[in-house]
Amino acid sequence: MKPANRAKLITCFLDKDSAPALADYLHNDCDLHSIHFAHARGQSSSNHTAHTWKERDIIQVVVSRERAKEIFEKIYLFQELDRRPNGFMFQEDLMMATPFIPPPQQPEDPQSD
């Protein structure tokens, strides 16, 4: 096992169906691959009715320490959290993380037509 350097985990609780766009952005524009998202339900003080559940997306990104600040800010701005209550995000320290290495692309089989 070859552990990566100390890393950070960034987690965002977002409105329903927001995660795929953010994942695409992080993958394509920030060159990140350790991204995972899931569906959830959430309750918060900003909900109009107390004890009302809302559908949410949770997205988690493992990022190197060096890029953590940059990625945190990019997510914040991409989600426009400075403009409207689009979610909640936080960052925590990871003791150890393994790098995600995408599998090599298989060469296309010329006889597969």
Partner: peptide
């Protein structure tokens, strides 16, 4: 313990 958090 979280390093930091952010929201609107």
């Amino acid at each position: 313990r979280l390093d930091k958090a952010a929201t609107f």
